[in-house]
Design a protein around this nucleic acid. Sequence first.
RNA 1: GGACGGGUGGCAGAGCGGUUGAAUGCACCGGUCUUGAAAACCGGCAGACGUGAAAGCGUCUCGUGGGUUCAAAUCCCACCCCGUCCGCCA
Length: 424
Amino acid sequence: MLDRRFVADNIDLITENCRIRGASVDVTKFAELDILRRQLQLDIDRLNQEAGQVSKSIGKVPPDEREPLKAEGRRLREEASKLQSRQAEVIEESDRILRSIPNLTHPDAPHGGEADATEVRRGVSSVPDFPFTPKDHVELGETLKLFDFEAGSRVAGHGFYFLTNDGVLLELALQKYAVDLLMQEGFTVMTTPDVARDSILEGTGFMPRGPETQIYSISNSDLSLVATAEITLGGAMHEKIFNINELPLKLCGISHCFRTEAGAHGRATRGLYRVHQFTKVEMFAFTAPDQSDAMHQQLLDLECKIFDGLGIPYRVVDTATGDLGGPAYRKYDLEAWMPGRGEAGEWGEVTSTSNCTEYQARRLGIRFRKPSEKGTQFVHTLNGTAVAISRAIVAILENYQQADGSVKVPDALVSWIGKTVLTV
RNA sequence: GGACGGGUGGCAGAGCGGUUGAAUGCACCGGUCUUGAAAACCGGCAGACGUGAAAGCGUCUCGUGGGUUCAAAUCCCACCCCGUCCGCCA
């Protein structure tokens, strides 16, 4: 969420920003409502002031002279409370608009939609050139008995799966690999709740309920299953006021991630690529405003380091404005080469890192204080995928496959898996 | 799940219907003193919103939401959270 005052004072800027992001928001309506809100505030303040003076005078007056003053006080309070409920309606309506306004946008982010992302970097591993027709991960994994989609369907429906045998070892190895690396990089590692209050989801920029939601919510409660540990890691510092010297703070969280993927049917849904549940190791950072650009680069570098270390070819794209989502100020995606996708291989998103500036921090109330200065400022929050297990498995299987259908184990994972090749 | 106790400023902790947005201590900031530091002393120190060029002024906020009252941190109700004990349990 942006600052309401800032929006009200910069209607043109906000309107243009909504345009390049493809967000249809009635900014003008917001401005009108905010003027009304301020006018009502003025009236309410005046009435409260008068009522307060009456109340104070009552205590100083003999009891038999109090009745007329009480009546006057009652009248003023009633009038104020009428205006207050009108103002509450105005605030609710304008807040609804305000919440739907996306974050500001980094000036260097490319304009346009999904296809307009610009490639900014390549990984060190080159795209494999197989002397045979590569299989996709579903075929490889079924042969090697790494997962079981049929059992997943029976238990929980389409989009759920069991990891089995070496598939389990792959998941554990990837987690351990990522966690070890991030601990060395100064991250505080944690496993997080897989559920969170709706208010925390909303603060992070997710919409837990409603027709468009991608979130599973738990009935008879205000809890939802998390779509990413970004939600819990950000929420962990709800209402926190940091001292400046505690920043930047780098957290790493492991959680399960649950996504309904409503409306995503038929779109590259085969196998592990798009599923309703997966495990993810997530990075999260809280920084002072002047640190967030550098931290964003740092998170990107770490994502690259992780995938370079796994020997997976990838490219990095700078996401275009229309594809950023609400909270992100700027976003980079790592797209791994997936030889089994499409006709002859395609790039597929494996990680994503966003600088959300103060968009999430404002709603979550996460601030910092400088000892030498009065007041507080909102921190900047950033997130980045370390490893989304299911997609990493897709990339590993398809890039490390061999002519006989076996799959080499990336060197970085051999010690955790205990073998160098996955075979039948 | 049951029974108590509690949630007040950055922290600790008073206040329990009427100039209390809130005593006091610690921390922090500025100053005096000092060669410097410490100590001592003096002063400052919550946030949001509104208004104003600014100084300032006003309103709201004592876990959250409702209620009682002319007036609530203080009384009532619900919920959330934190302790302690009991029960249950991986």
